[in-house]
Nucleic acid binder design. Structure first.
Lengths: 70, 70
DNA sequence: ATAAAATATCAAGTATATATTACATAAAGA
DNA sequence: TCTTTATGTAATATATACTTGATATTTTAT
């Protein structure tokens, strides 16, 4: 499934996929694939992305509605 | 680095590494390695673990103090 | 309308998460 | 003591995250 939260957070910071990729040490393609929901990033990469965008894991990678707590 | 939060959450539920592993569809060794901090799990596995233990990504996998926001 | 920048996507290669099998240790109970 | 359960760890195998390099399309600016 697409990760729109990531795309939005990147837009808030006004940085390109390429720029974010450089900041977290991966390639532009990897960021593109994550936003497109075409794969399953590692935890460390998710954390690096969150830090680069001033967000937390829950902000960018947690689907509230897929959680049955309430 | 060790993931004590995961070990504690598992203890709260009183389930073994093996039991948690079965619930999330991996092997006991994989859970053991994550708790021991010996590798970098995938996002989907982290999410599955969180759901099995009634926690969120931030609860189990986010290090508050490694975040420079404040 | 054209150029530049950003994104999408693809094929082939490398690195690493995860599985499988196995052995070892410690704790708990019979 | 002997057995069972939980855990740690290691070797080899496989699946897949991620890279590299390339082309194509879309968006934005001039």
């Amino acid at each position: 499934m697409k990760n729109l939260k990531l795309k939005v957070a990147r837009a808030e910071y006004d940085i390109s996929q390429d720029e974010l990729a450089k900041r977290v040490g991966v390639t532009r393609q990897t960021i593109g694939m994550i936003e497109a929901g075409k794969f399953n990033p590692s935890l460390q990469l998710c954390i690096a992305i969150c830090k680069a965008l001033g967000k937390t894991l829950n902000d960018l990678f947690w689907e509230e509605n897929s959680n049955e707590k309430i």
